[in-house]
Design a protein around this nucleic acid. Sequence first.
DNA 1: GGCAAATAATTCAACCGTTGAACAAATCAG
DNA 2: CTGATTTGTTCAACGGTTGAATTATTTGCC
Lengths: 392, 392
Amino acid sequence: MTDGPVRQASLREHNLGLVLRQAANAMRPPSRADIAAATSLTRATVSALVDDLIAGGLLTEVGPAPRAGAGRPAAGLVLSASGPAGLGLEINVDYLAACVVDLAGAVRHRDVRHADQRPGHPDQVLAEVAELAADARAHAEREGLAVAGAALAVPGLVTAHGVVRLAPNLGWRDVDVPTGLAALDGLPVTVDNEANLAALGELHAGPAGPASFLYVSGEIGIGAGIVLHGALFRGARGWSGELGHVAVRPDGPACSCGARGCLEQYAGQEAILRAAAAGGIDDLRARATAGDPGVLAALAAAGAALGVAVAGVVNLLDVEAVVLGGIYAPLAPWLRPAVVAEIHRRVLTDAWSPVDVRPSVLGADAAVVGAAGSVVRAIRDNPTKWLTRIIP
Amino acid sequence: MTDGPVRQASLREHNLGLVLRQAANAMRPPSRADIAAATSLTRATVSALVDDLIAGGLLTEVGPAPRAGAGRPAAGLVLSASGPAGLGLEINVDYLAACVVDLAGAVRHRDVRHADQRPGHPDQVLAEVAELAADARAHAEREGLAVAGAALAVPGLVTAHGVVRLAPNLGWRDVDVPTGLAALDGLPVTVDNEANLAALGELHAGPAGPASFLYVSGEIGIGAGIVLHGALFRGARGWSGELGHVAVRPDGPACSCGARGCLEQYAGQEAILRAAAAGGIDDLRARATAGDPGVLAALAAAGAALGVAVAGVVNLLDVEAVVLGGIYAPLAPWLRPAVVAEIHRRVLTDAWSPVDVRPSVLGADAAVVGAAGSVVRAIRDNPTKWLTRIIP
DNA sequence: GGCAAATAATTCAACCGTTGAACAAATCAG
DNA sequence: CTGATTTGTTCAACGGTTGAATTATTTGCC
């Protein structure tokens, strides 16, 4: 709202980003002329901008594609696969993960270490994350990728400065991640909620997904990432998305948060496993596939509770889609019908503007991939920062 | 996200708006030098921009304020009170209203006609609105105000093109307002949901209110206007804010929408009056003031239901404030405690980032004033459009 | 094979808006 | 009255985009 002034340089900044995004989002590698036509900039301007982007290592020319008809062949422009890359990190209850995504969005490296993180002290966990990060970085550099930054996904509430205010299922409280991760010599690290980064991952996964959706992350807790008009919404103070503590029945069972009837008590991982008398998600899935009536009933009940909460969100925010992530992704075949039914029943505008309910396409990797992607997205959206970092 | 290109002219466009907003939001009439300092533009640039804005009738100079210390006295700049004005219109169940707001945000004219609008045909109602609008416009012109545009508030779902898709309490369905209001010879008219415009009214009412809040409009139905980061959020397709049909108890009483346990069944006007056995809001308020236990219990119950729904919203969106509007404004003394209690109980982050729950400052006028304000805000945010309309 | 048509990319003078410094205007303190 | 101080304007310079002309490279046709 109260935005800054615009000087001449901001012009260039904006248009560099525009050209880069145009090259990124096109179906086929566009020519300079294509970009000029799409952006309504001049060919002269686009040429100048592209020169800068190529010099900065963000764009590369690919051999001319065979053309139909006469005319000089166009040089296709693609995001440089050897340009700056993003490092994604994730701390979760029972694993640590890292991955590297290049500027074009391709996952170039992935690493997961399964182990219960709850007993360890936060410093110990962060040290292991730093180790994982160093490994991933070395691997990337062996492929000729320069890692531009890192993002860490954590299942909890994170402040704007990267302090984990509260991560109940990890047993963390007020952990200052940036100082704990100082080992990554100078690499800028951002920290964010796991559901937020997973939502970003989903947003950028498909070629053209919905611009407004709710990503629901089912884990031991239930989080949500809210994407509105193609941008992640973090809330006024960074604490949006606490879907797990939306009330489903105001006088339902007591929740660990102190309230009653929270969604978590009906559709959280532990509630589902208890209701289905299952030992784990794999077991649950197997028995659901086999048609175990108790398991099917438990999943239907969880889906209905989830549907009630999600329908409220849709009524309120009018999102186009709901993405089922975390443990909900593999359970989607059994949860989805109940969620869809509640949306049909409760969303006022459902008749003329339906809501797409679908499982996550990235599955369990959504948060790490989203984290790594968020780093390269920042460069894509404001290439100037990167270019001036290269050539000051 | 996929925004357009930035040409040289966009620079000017942006900076004109920046200067104008700076003059509007300042505590005292700022000088050109003040604006330059606040925006980090040059004094030269600000002078050039201010010249354009004065020539276009959007800014005016006020006599130099007495200054402390040496130096040439500064010419204060204020939004022109004789510049373009906005016409606000409202159709509600039991009244029609109009108001005129000048560029500085002052309400210069107001008119309300109480009458039940439900029996009349939409065309008939729109004809009366047109009459009211013509009156208001004539009145404004007698004061030397040129009306730049109009905005109409309607208690229902409105498409982007101004068609009222559904207004249940008015009995309207697919009413094309712009063609029905064509009588306002050429005046551009936008149509929007009543709660949305009321939220805008609240946003601009105070000098510096919260940038993210939920405006709850209690009427026969319950609507909500969502303001995020200082901008109204309309949803992906324009149908956000259906708070009245958020489920409070999934298997509660049947609602007119076809679902069960919607908030409207607990905290809608009719539900409250029925529970309190009251004839109207005035009666209810009088008996609440007198301490009637039945009325107090009914209001506490309604407040609790509202609080459950609102707490869910806060958990999800992390808004800084909740504004109680419509009939909730006069009933706030009795509703607020229950709402606050539910927020304390259910909002996870409440302990370290509290939510302000307060009654609307504009009261019943919020929607009309917000509608009129939205017209002048559009000019404030993009003065270029207005300037080129004056001098093409 | 050669030439015209067509399309891509670059070059360059012109234009537009902002900048920075110099300058004129208006006031106060002594 | 004079010097200090702050406001506002003027003007050459600069950065960035534009549009037209030019060069480059291919296809299609005779």
